[in-house]
Nucleic acid binder design. Sequence first.
DNA 1: TACTGACCTA
Length: 664
Amino acid sequence: MKPITIRDPTKLSSHISTAAKNTEALIIQALDKIPDMKTLNKLHSRIISHPNLHSDTSLAIKLMRAYSACGKPDITRKVFDRMPQRNNVICNVMIRSYVNNNYYREAIMTYKNALASGVNPDHYTFPCILKACSSMTDSRLGLQIHCSAVKKLLHRALFTGNGLIAMYGKCGNLVKARQVFDEMPVKDIVSFNSMVAGYSQNGRFDEAFEVCKEMVSLGVKPNPGTMASLSPAVNNTTFENVTFVKNIFLDMPKDEIVAWNVMIAMYSNNSMSSDAINLYTQMEACGPEPDAITIASVLPPCGDLSALSLGKRIHKYVETKLSLPDLAVENALIDMYAKCGCLKDARKVFDKMIAKDVVSWTSMISAYGRSGKGREAKELFSRMRAFGIYPDSIAFVSILSACSHAGLLDEGRNYYESMTAEFKLVPRLEHFTCMVDLLGRAGRIDEAYNRIKNMPMEPNDRVWGALLSACHVYNNVDIGVIAADRLFELAPHQSGYYVLLSNIYAKAGRWKDVDLIRSIMKEKRIKKIPGVSNVEMGDRVHTFLAGDRSHPQTDEIYLELDVLLGRIKEIGYIPKVDGSLHDVEAEEKENLLVVHSEKLAIVFAMINSEPGVQIRITKNLRVCEDCHVAIKFISKVTEREIVVRDTNRYHHFENGICSCGDYW
DNA sequence: TACTGACCTA
């Protein structure tokens, strides 16, 4: 920089002020760029040491803004405290600094002090302080601010109005929120989004959708914020609503992750697992980088569909791209592996976790439970207790069902006892289902039935369903009929229950009743669900029906199946032909004799994978007795671990033994 | 005179 030469002493002061102006301009320029802390500290010292600048309000404001942006509201406060005069602008900056850094209590204090010292809040102050009220759900102050805004005729101003809607929404006062919303002469997308958020956060999902539809009809295009606001309302919703959300998603920019996340979660929570996975793959290809929320939303669908290769790819992504530990993600990984039948991988994730919550423990316990590994489930439950974690209602559901899957009658009773006596948890419907299942599987049909009769709430179809299956296993026709009667009322279109009752009659030789059931099914047009088995190979899922001959490799599959059946017959397999078969209609008989889908799927997997590789099958019905025996033998002769997931449990076949202990 | 702004994912 050139030295300033002073020729005329009379111009001295003007030179100084020019220099000061230059310095000030430079500092302002630097401050406006939001410098890092180091530069910021330097600039700050220059300002303080400068005789003309240290009390300059506009510089102080810029300085405060910069400190706030660096996440230092405490230093902002020091600058604020040193200023001799406070007007509304500098107070606004101070309050905003607090609010933007989540120091809501301090923001509110500052606001109150400013009011006390005669500072007038304005249209900058209201939106900001309302955000603090929302975050603290301080409805008293919220109301006061509403009154001040009315006095200043600012309550209908766009930003203040939006803040009021949000504040009332958070505080649960939807009447007020709606009133402000309706009275605003000009609304923008944030007004609509805030109204949507208010309704959906308070469980008023229909109204949330209504506002969304209203904004669309008024020509206001929903944005990713709309999706986020609607988010609580999209779980377990109607097909119509799902379609609506899908359409607004298709019609908006795809660069914001929240929109994708809400879509994936919506599919996941509406039993549309394959849609969730498809959208996720699309996101990988052309969307924003998935974050922890994306991952926690897409892993459950992976588990549902047993999409292990995708699940593993996501696990790698988690390890390379996400910042761990993240409880939600790790818990979701455990559950995904468990649902894919990979208990060891689930356990690996579990053991690696630095912090575990009750969900982590519960996921692992129920993973063992569903596989019939009652001992492991019990052990984890006591270890969880030893870690000082309190089991919640769901933890008891998983340990109770673990006991029932493993036939641990007394242990199950004890857990139930401690749940009510020690942990003071009120038994819910799910616990009764578990208990009925536990007693029923152990052959205590009467006791199970009595439990149902003494339930404090109305039993649902799952409770009666547990009783009916028990009656099927233990040939109890009388109680079976009672259970079936209730089920035909509660779930008249579930073909499974008709089939169960029909089988109960067949076992008892009551063929007239079997015919009766069959004619009822015909009359009501209830069709048996055909058995389907899925097996994942590479990136594809291959599906087999009973007697399926549509697969390209079908000849090879049947040939290999014959060879395999021959081999297992040599070591003792006797095909189990049901005794009731002789009295079954011809068509039915044929159905029972065709090769079941799980056998086809297993042979297919065997042909197409390396020896020793684990085979995983998912089935939409329960595995039949004959297949169960056959698969045990197959696991022995081929030295393969075979995991079959049926509708309510896992069978891990290894070396001729199944993890269910033939108890299912 | 100066200060930005708000709604939201599990």
